[in-house]
Simulated scan of single mutants.
Amino acid sequence: MKIIAMIPARYEASRFPGKLMKNLAGKTVILRTYEATKQSNLFDEVYVVTDSDIIFNEITSNGGKAIKSKKEHESGSDRIAEAVENLDVDIVVNVQGDEPFTQTEPLKNLLQVFKNDTENKIDIASLKIKMEDLDEVNNPNNVKVVCNEDGFAMYFSRCPIPFARDISKAVYYKHIGIYAFRKDALLRFTKLPINQLEAAEKLENLRFLANGITVKMVETDQLAIGIDTLEDLEKANAIFKNN
């Protein structure tokens, strides 16, 4: 089974423009993410996939592998699909470019799902983490997921799900946006039109569910630190300084 990691990387970002090229303890955010993913030793290859010459040159000039997108894309999954279409690969892991503290254990658990899936019932695997803080639960930037008894996603939403008629019975899980795809499922997804649910919530994972693409959720207790704001970058620099 050939497994690769793809790191989609846009230069522009609405909340923090150019964040992937910001300085994080002497290296750029995107280079830190690339190196952390490589150092996990879980992948046959690691690539950054980007629409930006700046990011492409940053990775390749530091000895890394990068692929330049040929088209404009609505999502990171679409960008990755273009890049892997002609590659000989079985599993493709989408690692977020703004998460320089990528950790090995959650990724290893994600990949183990496919190694155990002898009947090929799983199209996609992704991560979830339990949420205890109700302010976090109610924050629409935190995507929630509910699963069936076998751990497959039933729905993703920016709203708190389930609705708690009895708060003592409610358990909430945050979706962590790292995906591991079977290559054929990824290519199939990108050929599907955006549906009403995805358009309403602005969540591409709802396109999976609406079209019968299975998403196996793997629970983790390790929350990745993303760089979405200047404050996040300052916190990340402090972590590097203290370590």
Rank of each mutant, 00 (worst) to 15 (best):
M217H: 02
D133N: 15
L223S: 07
Y179Q: 13
C159Q: 10
I194P: 07
A210M: 12
P160S: 07
A170Y: 09
R207G: 04
Y173L: 04
I176W: 02
M131K: 05
A170I: 09
N141A: 11
V218F: 02
R207V: 14
N142C: 10
G177K: 13
L203E: 09
A153M: 02
V171R: 13
I225F: 14
K191F: 01
T229G: 05
D221S: 08
G226K: 11
L223D: 04
I178F: 13
G151A: 09
L127F: 05
P140C: 08
R182H: 04
H175W: 15
N211Y: 10
K144N: 08
F152D: 00
I129S: 04
S126G: 08
N138F: 13
E219V: 06
N142G: 07
G226N: 08
V143M: 07
V137E: 05
F189W: 10
E198T: 13
Y179T: 06
D150K: 13
A125V: 00
E201L: 11
L203I: 14
K191N: 11
C159V: 04
N211V: 05
C147L: 10
N138K: 13
H175R: 13
A164S: 15
T214E: 00
V137I: 14
L223R: 15
K169F: 09
L197G: 10
V218R: 00
I213V: 12
R207P: 08
N138A: 14
V171Y: 02
G212V: 05
F189P: 00
S168C: 05
N195H: 08
E204A: 12
L223E: 04
T220P: 03
D135K: 10
T214G: 04
G212R: 07
I225L: 12
L192A: 05
A180I: 05
F208A: 13
Y172C: 01
A164N: 09
T220C: 02
E198D: 10
R165E: 15
M131F: 01
Y179V: 07
I227P: 04
R158D: 01
